[in-house]
Write a protein that binds this DNA or RNA. Sequence first.
DNA 1: AGTTAAACGTTAAACGTTTTAATTTCCGTA
DNA 2: TACGGAAATTAAAACGTTTAACGTTTAACT
Lengths: 336, 336
Amino acid sequence: MVTIKDIAQITGVSCTTVSNVINGKDHRVSAETIERINEAIQKLGYVPNMSARSLVSNSSKVIGFINHVVTKDDSNFMEDPFHSVFIGVLERVLRENGYYLMLRTVATAEELMAFLRNWNVDGLFFTGIFKDAFFDALAPLTIPIVLVDSYVSDTHICNIGLEDFKGSHMATSHLIEKGHRKIAFASPSFREGGVVHARFSGYQKALEDNHIPFDPSLILEAEMDFSSCQQLCDELIRIPELTALVVSADIMAANLMTCLREKGIAIPRDISVIGFDDISLSRVVTPPLTTIHQDMNLKGSMAVEMMLERLEGNTPKKSNITLPVQLIQRESVRTL
Amino acid sequence: MVTIKDIAQITGVSCTTVSNVINGKDHRVSAETIERINEAIQKLGYVPNMSARSLVSNSSKVIGFINHVVTKDDSNFMEDPFHSVFIGVLERVLRENGYYLMLRTVATAEELMAFLRNWNVDGLFFTGIFKDAFFDALAPLTIPIVLVDSYVSDTHICNIGLEDFKGSHMATSHLIEKGHRKIAFASPSFREGGVVHARFSGYQKALEDNHIPFDPSLILEAEMDFSSCQQLCDELIRIPELTALVVSADIMAANLMTCLREKGIAIPRDISVIGFDDISLSRVVTPPLTTIHQDMNLKGSMAVEMMLERLEGNTPKKSNITLPVQLIQRESVRTL
DNA sequence: AGTTAAACGTTAAACGTTTTAATTTCCGTA
DNA sequence: TACGGAAATTAAAACGTTTAACGTTTAACT
């Protein structure tokens, strides 16, 4: 292993100087020396040891992506394209800026703290954090934290979210324009500070704006997996005169559509469906799903941008970004 | 920050002893001392500093998941459920065994080596490595390396793969049993040492076994994304009397089915399609895709198991595991 | 010529852990 | 009582960096 010492020795210079050159603090070093040092680095193939670096500097260049599991389940959080696509973007941009990405699942705040101190983690990404005890444990942390899809606000914690309310309002209004009046709302379970809440409000407001009375029996909750959707489907078909359905997540919509089809219910002939998210699947499902589009890649790059800004020590202009959504009309909605 | 020194001081013992207790080398420490130390650790909330640890011990507990990009593209490798689901499993099992997972994209072997030495990486996972210069660069490495879906063999590198040949043979035979004779094979581009090759051979052999002459004009290559599939689709419909299609990846099959439908071609009425992989999407697409199933979660856990065995220093029983596949009949194949 | 300040360095301590080799303590036995 | 040896413990070096704090030399002003 070639160390900074070797470089120093070979170039006849001290460790400090080599270190300064490596770290771009070369304003105190002559151009000629810099040249010599860089050559030696090149020739010997020197690579800095991050452990040594972080040991002394209290900064590791490690950014954590935290998957917070509420219940100790063995489900694979990577099944959700939202996590994976997001992580893919993170990895790329962080790397381009000299950072490293560590994945970590934690159940408790203690586990998180241990992880942070294990590695001197420099920054943290979270998806789907809600207002609860766990979130409160984040407050005393001083490293930059970027939340995604969390309706929680805090001075030093960034959030990057979506026009959930607006999107849902658009979806519902679209159905109403197409002549639908009895419209159900299906979604994963509500959690305080989660996106579902905002999406539900959008649905509710759209009804109100169109003078359609709100009917609580049209609100359906279930998990997103296939078998939960089957149960939900049974409830659905028992609702009389239902003509349309707003689903607050495309994965769920896709599962639901499959269940409905298996029961001989045609979409959009018997029932119209509109989704939310526009994941890649939505285009490929039959019929292609009309949905509210969000730009996952943009979301990821905005999140990294906020993170990087904070890492550089600049307080960013905004600590709360809301990304736009867009209605994508495909074939799962019919005009009444 | 509470260090090992603090624990030593408070319990009136040396750093060495504390270290020994922490690392389970407590055979040289009296039971009473162990007790005292553990209490102090608990009370002060001591958490080991991995940087310091790896600095001196040349082992970091960091396992890298490497995404090797051949061309410098900006596509998101996490779009592929194979990577993401796999990584999800890795993270869980590695964590349960005291390891940490770092994600890293590299373009060249040099980048990889730099990464390894940056962090003293203890082990490496790869998906989709092919027999090329990059692979050769892996040879001199001494840390455990686990490959997934790579038809390359090397003494100290593990591989965990699939019955690709058999699966493809099953798929093709299934179509033949259903009365099909003119069967095309569509797949992402062939690469030496990649799974596509094996899957192609299975197709070819099934034809041969059934005395159907092989027709090279029925072999179609394209990338998996939607627009490439559209082009491929144009070629497809120009083939006269084609009744069936083996697609060597479900993502591609799904895209292809959508393109075909957009051109007014009904599945399975006009053309039967059989896929490979059985990703979650396959069930939800219309018609539900008949495909060859593989167990991604099993694949992940087997891969970690091999990795852990090597990390413990045991040479595992096998360095090459082939997982079984299974035909899942759904509705995309019709009987002629 | 003498003073200053910039330019170009260096020395050595510190970071938190592991590990080797040395040291002390304790106990049973000759 | 002395002694051998096992058991329990320790001191100190080492890992590869960064970073204060300090030292030279040189160029530029009075």
